[in-house]
């Protein structure tokens, strides 16, 4: 059996790509592959998607009605029941993994390594601190299970092509009733690709001036098959929903192409995009800090540049 257990992230129907990125992080830890555990009320479809990824040794399903929503207090004790057989327990550093994994670690009496950005040895990992302004090499002592979250933007998803076996686990642990899921409200992103997996991301800032003005960015995004992100100020101003925020406290993304429209480049925002393949900055202030890290810069007014780009592409 594998030494690594990865907690699958999903929305009840589909496996999130973050799981394939965790598998990529796990590869140097156990060349024979990792086990992936799916906790859901209906596991079959999700488990089959996981089993089809390369680098998966085995998919374990835990099917219970209580697992319909990913409530950390309910999921954590089930993970702990499985974890004693493993040397590593990994989850993505998305809001799902950030919520759940420390609860798992504390129940096991061990610390957690947050946001692994590279594996430097069996017990050594690099992780960002101070909004990515410093990187620390952390060593976990021998003799304890390594519980960690994986900074998904640092790892490419593994390819398809696996044929792992799927086995159901019967876990009899008491689950708390003190936490109840009520609802999930998602903003309407149309048919645009998901921000965390899109190859192209366009990002807008508060200076667009209104929710309506973000419309010109959406039009360009649709032309380019791109996802749309935003700076914190644009979210705070209410122009776009919270799930579009990119940065230290929002989403960390690594698209092939990131185009920042009017974003000045606060350090908290830059930490969310540093892994992008190519960064394009368009800003009418030629001194904006974003030009320091941009691969291609254009000094110009968004309200001229965005419509012109849309016309020309």
């Amino acid at each position: 059996m594998s030494k690594v257990l990865i907690i699958a992230e999903h929305d009840g129907t589909n496996l999130n790509q973050s799981t394939a990125r965790c598998l990529s992080c796990a590869q140097p830890l156990d060349a024979s592959g990792a086990d992936v555990v799916v906790l859901a009320s209906q596991c079959t479809a999700i488990a089959e998607q996981a089993a089809g990824l390369s680098g998966v040794a085995r998919v374990i399903t835990v099917e219970r009605a209580e697992n319909e929503h990913a409530v950390a207090a309910i999921i954590a004790p089930q993970i702990v029941a499985l974890a004693s057989d493993y040397d590593y327990v990994l989850a993505p550093s998305t809001t799902f993994g950030k919520d759940l994994t420390p609860r798992v670690a504390a129940l096991m009496g061990v610390g957690q390594v947050s946001d692994i950005m590279s594996v430097e040895g069996p017990r050594q990992f690099k992780r960002p601190i101070y909004a990515g302004n410093a990187v620390v090499l952390v060593e976990v002592p021998e003799g304890q299970t390594i519980v960690a979250t994986v900074r998904v933007a640092s790892f490419r998803p593994v390819a398809a092509g696996g044929q792992a076996t799927i086995t159901a686990a019967d876990i009899s642990v008491d689950l708390p009733a003190h936490t109840r899921f009520v609802e999930l409200k998602s903003g309407d992103s149309g048919d645009r690709p998901d921000l965390q997996t899109a190859k192209v991301v366009l990002s807008g800032w508060r200076g667009l001036g209104s929710e309506e003005n973000f419309g010109i960015l959406y039009q360009l995004a649709d032309r380019m098959n791109a996802a749309v992100g935003a700076s914190r100020a644009a979210v705070d101003a209410g122009y776009v929903p919270n799930e579009m925020q990119v940065g230290q406290t929002g989403k960390i993304i690594a698209p092939d192409l990131y185009m920042a429209f009017g974003i000045s480049g606060a350090i908290q925002h830059l930490t969310g995009i540093k892994d992008a393949g190519t960064i394009v900055a368009i800003n009418k202030d030629g001194e904006a800090p974003i030009f320091e890290i941009a691969d291609i810069g254009l000094v110009g007014d968004l309200f001229d540049v965005i419509p012109e780009l849309e016309k020309r592409l």
Partner: peptide, 8 residues
């Protein structure tokens, strides 16, 4: 949360 706003 990543998918939007969750109420518990």
């Amino acid at each position: 949360v990543d998918a939007g706003l969750e109420v518990i």
